[in-house]
Design a protein around this nucleic acid. Structure first.
Length: 168
DNA sequence: GCCAACGTTGGC
DNA sequence: GCCAACGTTGGC
């Protein structure tokens, strides 16, 4: 039996957010221009893998939901498009440098699991995203980290409990 | 807006 | 192949 891998994929919600993904249903994850991330995309990601969608460069940053890899890796066409900000003159159609996968919407968390929340849990201390100077837009997470973060997302927040208490 | 961290580039 | 300079990322 082939087991799936788990990932964390960063996006700036001002450019592309979990709501955009929810609305479109799926998207091509193009524009990756880092060799380490390219290698993971091309060599390690497989159809069916699950990923935490992380919102960066926003207050507060954090995990906004879940998506699923729904294609094999294939060449990223923006590398040949001179009008694209991702154009790379070193790439040619017979020698692609950059790759993409498609991801599809799975879930938007009812509340963001914020970065400072992730930092509170010793179970998550080894996550790439919590390491100083981490700049990779895609990193691997363990199955344990993935399910733990999903469970945080599905927990009631104290403020929710207070609201319920106030109502009753 | 600052700045630490780190990947990339290019001269040698 | 080294390494300084530069550019980018991203939290704060």
């Amino acid at each position: 039996m082939k087991s799936i891998n788990y990932w964390l994929m960063k996006t700036e919600p001002s450019a592309f957010s979990i709501d955009d993904l929810a609305q479109k249903g799926f998207t091509e994850w193009d524009g990756v221009r880092n060799f380490q991330v390219r290698n993971m995309l091309r060599d390690e990601m497989q159809e069916g893998d699950l990923a935490l969608l992380y919102h960066s460069s926003i207050k507060p940053p954090g995990v906004a939901g879940v998506c699923r890899v729904c294609s094999e890796a294939r060449p990223d066409p923006t590398q040949w498009d001179e009008s694209s900000q991702y154009y790379d003159k070193k790439a040619s159609p017979d020698k692609p440098i950059w790759f993409l996968v498609e991801v599809e919407f799975v879930e938007k968390f009812s509340h963001l699991v914020a970065l400072n929340e992730l930092k509170k849990h010793p179970q998550l201390q080894h996550m790439h995203i919590l390491r100083k100077g981490n700049r990779l837009s895609i990193t691997s997470v363990t199955h344990t980290e993935f399910t733990f973060i999903c469970s945080l997302a599905h927990q009631e927040r104290p403020s929710d409990k207070e609201l319920i208490k106030q109502r009753s």
